[in-house]
């Protein structure tokens, strides 16, 4: 696919060209492609679905059918920093709900809410594989572990500074 036609950056476009060639069948690239597209565009917009479908050679309906299965894929924008608080058993026992409530209080948003300025969104999520370092959260892909509610303001101000400064989306 020529770069001028793509909605993705030249770097991501090139990455996708390599990705579809790396498997025995093209379609194996579908799920990582959707995730990487979402990382760049923010969500799976109609344009993202259309271009991914074309690159793989399947219908848009087929892409949507697969995409709706996976919980990390979304069809609406999230905040620039998506805060995912694990409340599953190991985290729950060590105060995950208290951490989650503190995020709600600080951000004035609930599950899947986005702050009005678009900087943060909040999600209660299932186990993220950091149970021995509970309670744990992910901000986009970055892990923060062994948290207490009092760690919440500091985490938020760090990301706020990043959002305002020149630091790129982590």
């Amino acid at each position: 696919m020529s770069e001028t036609m793509s909605i993705f950056s030249p770097a991501l476009s090139a990455r996708f060209d390599a990705l579809v060639a790396k498997y025995p069948v093209k379609r194996s690239a579908l799920i990582p492609m959707l995730l990487y597209a979402q990382d760049e565009i923010g969500y799976l917009s109609d344009a993202v679905i259309a271009e991914v479908a074309e690159r793989i050679g399947i219908t848009e309906l087929d892409v949507r059918n697969v995409a709706t299965y996976y919980s990390m894929l979304r069809f609406k924008p999230a905040g620039k920093y998506n805060i995912q608080v694990c409340t599953n058993i190991s985290c729950m026992l060590r105060g995950a709900y208290e951490v989650y409530e503190r995020f709600q209080d600080e951000l004035h948003i609930g599950h899947k809410g986005v702050t009005p300025d678009g900087t943060f969104s909040l999600e209660e999520v299932e186990c993220i594989g950091a149970c021995c370092w509970a309670p744990a959260i992910q901000v986009n892909y970055a892990f923060h572990d062994e948290l207490t509610p009092n760690d919440v303001p500091k985490i938020l101000s760090e990301y706020k500074a990043k959002a305002n400064g020149s630091v790129k989306n982590a």
């Binding site: 194996s28 990582p32 996976y70």
Partner: peptide
Amino acid sequence: QSGAGAYEVGEESALMESLEGKR
């Protein structure tokens, strides 16, 4: 290969489906 969030994909045959680009 990267998944995209799904516990069930850990089941071996669902894992193969996912790797083939399916639900």
